[in-house]
Structure formats: structure tokens, C-alpha cells
Design a protein around this nucleic acid. Structure first.
Lengths: 204, 204, 204, 204
DNA sequence: AATGAATGAGGGTTCATTCAT
DNA sequence: AATGAATGAACCCTCATTCAT
């Protein structure tokens, strides 16, 4: 079962798994290919048979995420730009994240690295597109911030709350609830009477 | 002004400045001491005259922040645990961040690194303490999330909004406003009617 | 014509062609088997089906040249050691070179490599034998140099003149003419009145 | 005298010496920095203190040659374009070569490498300039070949004759003599009667 | 006739760090 | 207050080669 032979055929997958684990645990730069190879009990050179560079491993990891998020964007763009749609975007985005938690942890904690990893920009764009789907361009600044915060609370929340007591699934729900609230508040039904209570920013 | 002579005596400071700049621009691991030294037009060895290790430079950077935040904590702990106090905590925290923006950007984008940098834990604890000052331990999970999100929106918002149009100072204000709202919502005056309507925040 | 099917049976030849092309373009060490395989759209392992080692590919290339040159030597040794014979040696040698230009370019530009490639010595010996056929052992040093230069001008000339304007075939002719002149000058008909002006080398 | 201490200050020079030795003995690609470092009893990293890259070592070696050859070119360009000048060019060029024999051997035997070493082109240009100083642009093709051959015989001759018996200095003289002859033959005094007899060079 | 998967050795390069001066 | 010279460890990556299939 675990002889060199029986492993054939799934090495690529195993590399991805181990790499993601280590990258998200220790950071990208601090994880060496030697380390990955050792944990897999293969040689570094074996990694290079499956991936052209270290960066290529990361790229392949991101590819798994691309699909779901692109689908989400495509779906949202086809919907009417209503509050209900936006709330559903939040919900679905949260679901995507749950399935890709380690990868998001990696992104979250290695932003400086991801930033110039080429794939990084791709992702930033996706985020910006999502943001564009939630906000109204002519809305007040505070509303824009609400939408952004909604998005980020999903990202950050997941990891920040790991230390907190409580059932993970319930925490997830709570995060989504708050994010939904934020989006809701940012998209008032009538649009004119810009939340009477809201900040003293505009209006007399 | 910038002759070798006029630099006398402030090299330590200059190292910190350049290091912080590069760390927050490129990330900690990707910034080498050689790079720092070159930008300062001194030798690497000179850095070691002023700092014992690379990590020591980071530590010294964090020290500038320690004071203000410790003061904030001390102050808050001496206040009554009211909503007003919590709102003031948010306000003051936001102010601290503005003064230390590059350092926070560095923290934000190099979490994986900062995490095992010893000083990292110190900071995490501070954050946790701040969090403890905002939340009510027996509050509902969503309220806890609100407080956490308030804190994070201050962190993340600053950088995420750099791409957004608009006057920086106004954006800052908007972020603080949303954060304040979140804390406010998380600390309802009466405590019973756990806002089902949410967001509408204040009201009599 | 170039479908996988039509290639059947001539892979060995194709490897040689591509290898020679790359070796002479980029040098032996800088050309990897991966590169050769990729250009042929086969796997590296396929190369090993046809050749035992990388060096073996080179050896096989040289083998094509061995024949013609050995014939030339055999022929020359059977002739009377006259000037006419020597001139014909030059002519024939030049002809061999034209047919094997890339291989000679490879030799010329990778001497350091060829030198310890085993086949290298074989070739050096052939060259020395040719040299022996042109020169008179008891001739003056300058005459020996003339013969050597004749040989080299054929080698080097071909490549050095690539940058020069002019019809390739005419350039070839010009090179051969000069080489012939050199050999002629090195083998004076009478032998005694060794160019009165020439070096003070021998003398009575 | 040979303690780590007494070596101080001349390491750079020692690296150049050892590197040139090994490069010209074994070839550039086959000489590893480890090898150079070991022969010097320093670490590879020490090499990088003195030279930015492996290529940089080669460049530094070529720099020693640049001066003399540039001087030669400058001098020649200031002279009248007579046969005597050209003969003197050959003489001086030969002298330069003697002082830089190992480097020329390296160039000669690693052309494929030198070709894409950046400095390689620089040198090729110098050679072309020298060639331009010897030949008459409107001369017949054979005369052009004579000039080129003159230049090459100096290069190649040096190494090719190493295997030949005889005093090195005398061999050098012989080579120069032949090269001079070639240049002389390529620049007939009267210019019209394009020597059909050639080679007999001098004559009264 | 050729592939897929892997290896072991080694490549050049960079790093944080040290220490005598 | 700072330098010049060097180290040791590690890095990512590439190579020629092997072998079961």
C-alpha cells in the first residue's frame, strides 16, 4: 500500500497536499522544497518532474479555487443586482472559503509573497470584481467600507476565530450573518433616505 | 544634509526607516540585509553594529508601537466598561494605526513570518486583550464576531482601500465609522432585545 | 510526412540531426538531453533507447566523418609524397569539411569539451596524421607552420568568414586557394635554396 | 605566509589565477566554482564576495586583455595605412598573445561558451576591427582570406604547436613570420598585378 | 519503440552572521 | 562607528541516467 510502487499515479496530488499544508503552516518562503520532498519521502528532483518551479506548485493550488469563484462571479453577473443577490453572493463565497480553508489561510498570511506571485494579481482582480458586485458605485463611502468589511470578515474571520471557543460551524454561521448584515446595511431598500442614523458624513 | 558627516549619530534610525520601508514593500523574507545596507550606502556589518540580528530590527520597529497600544489598554482598563469607552477604544486604536501605517501593513502582509517572530505573539496577545475590552464574554457569537470584525476592518481596511478613489482621511473616517457601528451593535444598551433588525444600530 | 507514423524507424537519425544542430549552435554542455527530446517531441528516455549516453550521440556523429577522412589518409599514404599529392589532400580535405560543416563547427567551438570526449583524441590523431602527410619532417619550422596554418585555415575559415559578404562557394574556393598556396610554399621544388630570406632557424 | 591571514588582500587575484588555469585546462562549463574554491581553500561564498557571478570572473579576466588590444587598435588607426604598419600590427598582436596565452587558449577552446558571454561579442568586434586594419576592403577575396588566416594562425598556432617539438620562442617567431608573409602577400605594393605567383612573398 | 516516474549528484547563487581591524 | 573578508548552511533548480511498464 505504501511501497514506492503503490504510490504511483498520485504523487502530484500528494505534493500539492503536503505543500499546501506546509505553506499555510510555515509560510511560503520558509517552506523549502527539501522539506516538502522529505515529508513525501521522495527527492527534490521528483518535485520538479511534476512542477516546473516552486511557484508552479502554488499556482496549481490556486487553480482549484479559480473555478468555484469564477462560477460565483458568472452567476452573480447574470442575476438582477438586488440585495437578495448580494446576500446570496456572500453566502456562496463563504461556502467556497470553507472548502478551501488552508489555501485562504495561506493567502491571508502570505500576502506579501502572494502579491508578486503573478497568480496574486489574478486573485486580487477576482476580489475586486466581487467587491464590485456588492457595492453600488455611487454609494456613500461608509457603504463601500461596509461591503469591503463584509468580504474581509469572511476571509479573516475564519482564521482569527480559530482561537475562540465554540463550534466551528456555528462560528462560520455567525460570521456569515454579520457579513450579510453589513451588505444589507450598505444597500438600503429605498436608496434615497440614506440611513437617517448613519454617520454625520453627508447631508444637513 | 545627506553627506556622510551629517548622518552621524542617526544611523540606527535610518536603518529602521529603510528596513520598515522595504519590509512592508517586499516582505520580510524577501528583503535581505544586503538590500537594506545598499540603500543606506553602508556595509552589512554596519547593521550588525546597531542590531544583533535581522529579527532584532523588526523587534525594534514593533517597540515604537508597543507604547501607544499599552497605554490604550491601560487607559481602557481604568475606564468603566461602557459602550462609550469601547467606542473611544476604537477611535484611539484607529489613531495609533494611522501613525504606524507601514508597520501595520508589514504585519498584515507578513503574518506567517510575524507569527514565529516572538514579538508576534506579544502582539497577538495585545490584540486579544483589545478584543477582550470590546466584547462581552457572555454575549452571543454574532456579537463577538462584530467586535472582531471591527478590529480587523481597521487593520485591513487601511490597505485594502488604497486602491479605492477618495481622500485618504475621509476613507479613514468611514472605516472608523463602520467599526464604531459594529461595536455599538455588539453592545446593545438593554442587552435583551438582541437586535433582529440589526444595522439600524442606534435608535432610542 | 512528419506525422508520428511517418517518423517510424528514423528516430535515431532524427536524434542525430537535432543533436548536431543544437550542439553546434549552443555548445555541447549547454545543450541538455531534455532540449533535444523536446525538439523531437519525444521523451528523454526515448533517446536512451537509441543511445547509451549523451557522449554516445556525439560519438555517432563523429563516425560519419571518420570514413571519409580515413579514406583520404589511406589514399594519400598510397600516393607518392609529391607536392601534387599534398595539394590534392588539401582539396579533398576541404571537400570533406563542406559536407560536414556543422560537425566541424561543433569541434571548432567546443574544443575543450571534445578534448576529453575520447573520440576527441581519435580526431586529434587523424589531424596529426594529415599534418604528417603535408609537412616534411626535416623542413624548417616556418614550413611546418605553413602546413599547420593551411589545415587550420580550412577549419577556422569556414566559420570566421560567415560574417563576410560574398558567395559561400567563392569564399570556399578562396580559402582552398590560400591553403594550397601555403602548402606549396612549404614544399619548395628543389628543397635546397630554402627561401633565402626566411628565418635564421637552420642554416649550415 | 600562507596562514589565512597573510592571504588577505590578494584573494581576488588568486581567484583569477586559479579560475583562468582551470577554465583553460578543463573548459568553462566543466569547471565548477566549488572546484575553484577548493583549490584556493576558501568557500564558494568567498568567491561571491569578490565576483558577482561566475561570468563576472571571466569578464574580469578579459579586462586584462582589453587594454593592450585597444591600445594596439588606437595606435594602428593613427598610423598611415601602409604595409609596414600592418606588419607591425601582426608583430604587436603576437606579443599581446604571448602575455595572455592561457586566456587565449581559453577563448580558443571555449568559443561556444564565450560566444554568449556578452564579453564575447566585445572581443569579436575587436577582432573584426583588427581584421579591418589589415585588409583592403576592395581587395580580392583571396587577399581577405590571407589576412584572416594571418590573424587565426597567431591564435591557433600557439596551441596547436604545443605538441610539436622545438623551442617555444622559436615556434612563436616562425608563426609570426608566416603571419607576416600572409599579410604582406595580401597587400601587394603596386596593387595591379594581383600576384599569380604569390607566396614567394618578398623578392628584391 | 518509447514512456512515466524517479533518482543522486551537483550546479550557481544568496543568506544571515562573524570577527579582526 | 563601521569595514573588508569570509563562512556555513541552505536555497532553487537542472542534469544525465535508470527502469519498470
Amino acid at each position: 500500500m505504501s511501497t514506492p510502487h503503490s504510490r504511483r499515479g498520485n504523487t502530484r496530488q500528494r505534493i500539492q497536499d503536503v505543500a499546501l499544508g506546509l505553506f499555510s503552516e510555515q509560510g511560503y518562503e520558509k517552506t523549502s522544497l527539501r522539506e516538502i520532498a522529505e515529508e513525501l519521502e521522495v527527492t527534490k528532483a521528483a518535485l520538479y518532474y511534476h512542477f516546473k518551479t516552486k511557484e508552479d506548485i502554488v499556482i496549481s493550488l490556486f487553480e482549484d479555487l479559480r473555478g468555484p469563484i469564477d462560477e460565483l462571479i458568472t452567476w452573480a453577473e447574470a442575476q438582477p443586482r438586488t440585495l437578495a443577490t448580494k446576500q446570496e453572493v456572500i453566502r456562496r463565497y463563504g461556502a467556497s472559503l470553507r472548502d478551501a480553508e488552508p489555501l485562504f489561510r495561506f493567502m491571508q498570511e502570505n500576502q506579501a509573497t502572494v502579491r508578486d506571485l503573478a497568480i496574486g494579481n489574478t486573485f486580487k482582480e477576482r476580489m475586486h470584481t466581487l467587491f464590485g458586485l456588492l457595492r453600488e458605485p455611487d454609494a456613500e463611502l461608509t457603504d463601500q467600507v461596509r461591503c469591503l468589511t463584509a468580504l474581509f470578515s469572511i476571509h479573516a474571520g475564519m482564521f482569527a476565530m480559530q482561537n475562540l471557543e465554540g463550534d466551528p460551524e456555528e462560528k462560520r454561521k455567525a460570521i456569515l450573518e454579520v457579513a450579510t448584515e453589513l451588505v444589507t446595511a450598505a444597500n438600503p431598500p429605498n436608496r434615497r433616505p440614506a440611513r437617517p442614523d448613519s454617520a454625520q458624513t453627508v447631508s444637513p
